[in-house]
Write a protein that binds this DNA or RNA. Structure first.
Length: 133
DNA sequence: GCCCTGACCGCCA
DNA sequence: ATGGCGGCCAGGG
């Protein structure tokens, strides 16, 4: 088991990695190999900037798999304290529905770090794309 | 195994 | 700007 996963709080581990009996394993155990590089890239997005699902996927060595990045963020143990708010959709668009709780929280956090958010988008200048495709 | 649903993306009408 | 579509591919029913 990797350090990242080992750090997860017991409650989260029981949720995502219930005791396996007879072969069935949790999401995390099964796909940690693909998820961890993603989590690491997300951790590397500097404060005051943001990146996109697609760019994170590329930087994690998984080009074309932006959806997997969304999945990785969704199942990430809260204990990892990932800066998930720094990940936005293409063109700097906030991926959550306008007005949703998640949407507001993401905007709040980004602004708290000095990122300008207008009309549900972060300025292109604030995007850290890890090098063009 | 099949089908639907995604914290997605780029292309095209 | 906006909506549809195919491509992507995990989970979950």
């Amino acid at each position: 088991m990797s350090p990242l996963i080992r750090r997860a709080r017991p409650s989260a581990r029981s949720l995502l990695a219930p005791p396996m009996r007879g072969g069935s394993r949790s999401v995390i155990d099964r796909s940690a190999a693909a998820l961890e590089p993603i989590w690491n890239v997300v951790c590397a997005i500097p404060r005051g900037s943001a990146s996109t699902y697609g760019a994170v996927a590329r930087a994690a060595g998984l080009p074309g798999r932006a959806r997997l990045v969304g999945f990785a963020l969704r199942v990430a143990p809260a204990e990892l304290n990932l800066p998930w708010h720094r990940v936005v959709a293409a063109q700097g668009r906030i991926a959550f529905p306008r007005g949703s709780q998640h949407f507001r929280e993401q905007v709040r956090r980004l602004r708290a770090e000095g990122v300008r958010v207008e009309k549900g988008r972060v300025a292109a200048a604030a995007l850290e794309l890890f090098g063009p495709p």
